[in-house]
Design a protein around this nucleic acid. Sequence first.
DNA 1: GATAATTCCTCCAGTGACTAGAGCTTCAAG
DNA 2: CTTGAAGCTCTAGTCACTGGAGGAATTATC
Lengths: 137, 137
Amino acid sequence: MLSIGDLSKRTGVKVPTIRYYEQMGLIEAAERSEGNQRRYERNDLERLAFIRHARDLGLDIPAIRELIALSQHPDQPCANADRIAADHLVAVREKIEKLKKLEHELERIISHCDGHSIEDCYVIRALSDHGLCEGEH
Amino acid sequence: MLSIGDLSKRTGVKVPTIRYYEQMGLIEAAERSEGNQRRYERNDLERLAFIRHARDLGLDIPAIRELIALSQHPDQPCANADRIAADHLVAVREKIEKLKKLEHELERIISHCDGHSIEDCYVIRALSDHGLCEGEH
DNA sequence: GATAATTCCTCCAGTGACTAGAGCTTCAAG
DNA sequence: CTTGAAGCTCTAGTCACTGGAGGAATTATC
């Protein structure tokens, strides 16, 4: 039996976050000690590690809730789980593309600036005047 | 003189967002009509375009506030403005790196799954068992 | 066994950058 | 002069936590 603090240390999920996940229904309400403190077992540890891992991959809570629900019907086809992951992959790729554009834009702005005065600062000027941008954004 | 709606159309910043920026002190409180409606001029348009552009680049409001303050001292050196942009560039690059790792991980998980049942689903298994991951994350 | 230090509990509020809605007033067009 | 769009303020909600207050339970030390 683990206390919430033990569970936190083992999974790297902060204590208030564990309580938050319980509130959100991602983990079941834990058993309590005589003094009303949460007590966890091995399967809670696994469940929480699953959630942690999914969050690290950037999945949001509704998606995780769905994956958990799916994982509880082991006999069903896993097309839905694949779809969740694939949709997320698309979103991740889109974010990467956007950020790459930003990266280039920032590089360009910074490299154009000669570092003298604000009056001539390319950073400030580029922000003021969208016409100085390359491409659309 | 522009109404808040006109300003919104011209800059692409939504009306409630303009009011929010005013509240946050990014734009000065506008003059008002007799009937208490905001009235804007050309320089408000420029200021708001500046903010919009900086937000599109992903700068947060404190950074934008700082850039605005800097832009009002045209005789000072622009090292600070450069630093803000450079710091942001570092943050953007870090985000890109993280997302690329996620991309690979998701690709790998999805490609391993044969699409049969949840029981064997690699998506679910990979999430449950961190040991199936490549590298650290 | 007493005490002290740590961990736990619940509840509430705050984060960032908006966004939405209620309920009311003003403006512009016909 | 009427009507409908657009404006006003104020409040609350979004997402996924995070932090603090104030108090109870547990664990460690003496």
